[in-house]
């Protein structure tokens, strides 16, 4: 699905990311963990063609994302507030995204139904503009928008941060539900090791722009990662 070849990104000679080779297959849940500044967001931005690589390329379904725009059709993403249109109401924003994705309004309603628990009876009927919502609700709107149109690839940056515990559990359930329903590739970054190991069967550990571990999760994964982050073990 996603193929990375010789990818590197430098800012003023400082290497922010350096991934010689990486393949994410269809249906996989790919979790990215790492400390602040490890290059997680940069990597996601490179996949989304928001940042131009210094070297190498990212290919989505075999097509270089900097050349072809066809990945936009089947990729849903939410990285930060710059994905939100602040002066729309949540529903107007969803409709906007749906129209771009050629999703009819009845399909949209159906797809949002799935998120009812996540929204906690708020948001859908909300008449405030997105800029007037709380940070947590803004995030929910962004994540929901990334799911509209049943995209084949979903890319989320820190989806669990800033959400209340209830919403985190709901979100985990929704993501798992989507994965059971259809083949979807998830690429998620997170600081929260518990959550990420819960849904992702593959976890990459980023450190200073390099992938220092790329593991299939099993019962030991969480322990391994915890040891790394507590500084007990050089991985």
């Amino acid at each position: 699905m996603i193929e990375v070849r010789g990818l590197s990104k430098k800012y003023d000679r400082k290497t922010a990311l350096d991934i010689p080779s990486l393949t994410i297959s269809p249906g996989e849940c790919f979790g990215l963990v790492g400390n602040n500044g490890a290059g997680k967001t940069t990597f996601l931005r490179l996949i989304l063609d928001l940042v131009l690589p210094s070297q190498g390329s990212v290919a989505s379904k075999g097509l270089d994302v900097t050349v072809s725009e066809s990945w936009k059709r089947y990729t849903g993403s939410y990285l930060d507030e710059s994905f939100l249109i602040e002066f729309l109401t949540p529903m107007e924003y969803f409709r906007f995204i749906a129209n771009l994705q050629k999703v009819t309004s009845s399909q949209l309603r159906q797809q949002l139904q799935l998120l009812n628990g996540f929204f906690n009876e708020q948001i859908i009927e909300e008449t405030k503009y997105i800029r007037q919502l709380s940070k947590g609700n803004q995030k929910k709107v962004g994540i929901a928008a990334a799911l509209i149109g049943e995209p084949e690839i979903i890319i989320l940056d820190e989806p669990f941060a800033n959400l209340d515990p209830r919403s985190v559990i709901q979100l985990l359930r929704i993501l798992q539900h989507i994965r059971q329903e259809r083949t979807v590739t998830l690429i998620i970054s997170s600081h929260n090791l518990n959550h990420i190991t819960e849904i992702c069967e593959r976890i990459a550990l980023l450190d200073n722009g390099r992938i220092i571990q790329d593991i299939q999760t099993d019962e030991h994964t969480l322990k391994t990662l915890e040891r790394y982050f507590s500084g007990e073990e050089e991985v």
Binding site: D49, E69, K72, T75, L79, S82, F83, I85, L100, Q101
Partner: peptide
Amino acid sequence: SSFFDMLLTGNIDH
């Protein structure tokens, strides 16, 4: 500028 990333990643070609 406040939603530029959305315009670049949404399903709209340039």
